[in-house]
Design a binder for these strands. Structure first.
Lengths: 354, 354
DNA sequence: TTGAAAGCGCTAACAC
DNA sequence: GTGTTAGCGCTTTCAA
């Protein structure tokens, strides 16, 4: 960068013929300061002419604020393959802007490294934290919450011991996955397979798995571990898991997939085996990613309102940073089942409803 | 945050019984300073015990560095729907970490607001910038480049007037889209439709469109604007565009889609119309998103090496920030055509190769 | 109404 | 080898 572009408040002050204090007062609209209209205009013009933007570090050093929010994606691979996340990123970024914040994207590669985002906090790089899909082996977050650092979780989580201090925007994954499974049971299926969302160290995975199990048992069906395979967010993992589920008969007649991307991969495996969806195997997904209505056949799935989740999370966090305690620490959003064609509940004629 | 967590170098110094200078020297491994092993160990231990992390703002203020890279996604909607971007985000974040940088995610909502990322630069929030899919109506970027601010573009772009100052990791979109179209021509197609990547204000869109046209004309086929529809990154836009293309006969016998997500949507429209892929309409996409091999049928597409692009972009940028001028300002990556089943080039038996 | 001066936490040149 | 000190650019109290 050329020296020319390093404009300081000093230069603005000089150009406007005032002191740096005045510049600061004008630019920050300090309430107490009585600045004449004429001076104010001169300062504003000088700043505009020079393209002055206050140095973020200096401002942050003195104010203690960074105007930056950290977004933690618990597993980096997840980001790469799951189409649910981009919607959230979009919404988070969008809403943060509207509240005057920037978003620092932090992906966590390694479980064992405990300081990954503690460092952001300790180094005072961020004013608050949004954590996506918390893992059950995360030890640092409870610590942060205990110290009252502003944190909002996206996704479902109960922490008995911290209940009223855990701020979250959640959907009831347990109930929703149970409802998805019930839907399949209601269509007459008894051999319903499940491919999990991820390895077992995600809360979301445990909860969805559990919901599936509860629905089976509530209907008097046996929970059969052979019908459960572990996925890994991706279509590739869904494809492989489904192939394994189709290695021996009797085939399952329905699948509840841990997310839509996994469902997509599983559908490819089903198709490759020469089986039809939904006639031979019904499929239900989770998330309602933007491409779900355009799969062949269109995917029946639990809808997670990603954009609204993102918006609410930022609004809540921005409040927490300002010391506003929300009425209820946890916001629960509805997660409706969107019935399309892949579950077989609808007539062919209506199959392509979007 | 409790006061306890606001650990400063002063406290570390006190605990270790040394001065703040010594703490700084030890923690930053300053080469010149001769620190006794014993002192060094004491400082390190004190820092560890207190969980000391230097205040980022203070450090940045004095060093002039932020250790943060800005990532600009030119259109916010794009982020939400295109599965190509997450791969890049992943790679960018991953590589940045390895180089000691953080990633600030900046989405540009509004074309007209000229200061969107100039502000990041002027406020010295970032040390360098990565710009994804530059738009042709972007006026601020040339300015930044002219001033030698470290910028790396991802995607193809020629700027005659700045040629040797534009750093980029690119694929030859013109050649690649031409090659994709040629592939369809080689399979005997003459009515080949194109759904563009986005509205026309992206360079990538113009280039892919142009490559399609060049291939047609090189083969002596007429370029027919009626076979071209504008997409909008998303499956929904691909679906709608394809529906329009199928409104009157003769139908196109092949489609070259501006990206894979659009191809996915278009495939749904084709299927809904009762037509078969590839027998009635062959489809070729662009990007090779992670789900492309799992579409039904698996998608033939141009492969953009997103992860490698991201890695190279960060490496180049990190070099530029340190003043390292790369041998060649533009790195060009190969973009092979991955032939799967959707184009009809392969036998049915091999259709599901992944 | 405006200006002088202190200090946020850190690094690094310069003494000791 | 280690400590003293002067800023980095900004906000903000206090004085004029």
């Amino acid at each position: 960068m050329t020296p020319k572009s390093r404009v300081t408040s000093h230069q603005v002050a000089k150009r406007a013929g005032v002191s740096r204090t005045t510049v600061s007062f004008v630019l920050n609209n300090v309430p107490g300061a009585n600045i004449s209209e004429e001076t104010r205009a001169r300062v504003l013009q000088a700043a505009a002419e020079l393209g002055y933007v206050p140095n973020a570090a200096a401002r942050s050093l003195v104010s203690g604020q960074t105007l930056t929010l950290g977004l933690v994606v618990s597993h980096a691979e997840h980001l790469k393959v799951d189409a649910y996340i981009p919607q959230l990123l979009y919404s988070l970024s969008h809403t943060s802007h509207r509240h005057g914040y920037r978003v620092l994207l932090e992906t966590v590669e390694d479980v064992s490294r405990a300081d990954v985002y503690l460092e952001l906090v300790r180094g005072q790089r961020i004013d608050g934290l949004i954590v996506l899909n918390l893992r059950s082996d995360d030890k640092q977050l409870p610590e942060l919450i205990r110290r009252n650092f502003p944190v909002v979780l996206i996704g479902f989580r109960r922490w008995a011991e911290l209940e009223e201090k855990v701020y979250a925007v959640e959907t009831d994954d347990l109930e929703a996955s149970s409802r998805a499974t019930q839907h399949l049971i209601g269509l007459g299926h008894t051999r319903i397979a499940h491919i999990t969302f991820s390895p077992d160290n995600y809360f979301a995975t445990q909860t969805r798995h559990q919901g599936y199990r509860l629905a089976l048992e509530a209907a008097g069906l046996e929970y059969n571990p052979k019908l459960v395979r572990f996925g890994n967010y991706s279509a590739a993992s869904g494809y492989e898991a489904m192939q394994k589920l189709l290695q021996r008969k009797p085939y399952p007649t329905a699948l509840f997939a841990g997310n839509d991307t996994i469902a997509l991969g599983a559908m490819a495996a089903i198709h490759e085996k020469g089986l039809r969806i939904p006639q031979d195997i019904a499929v239900v997904g989770y998330d309602d990613i933007p491409t779900a209505p355009y799969l062949i056949p269109p995917l029946t799935t639990i809808q997670i309102p990603a954009v609204e989740q993102g918006r609410l999370a930022v609004e809540m966090l921005s409040g927490l940073i300002r010391g506003v305690v929300p009425e209820r620490p946890q916001i629960r959003l509805p997660a409706p089942l969107i019935v399309r064609a892949s579950c077989g509940a609808k007539q062919k004629a209506k199959a392509y409803q979007r």
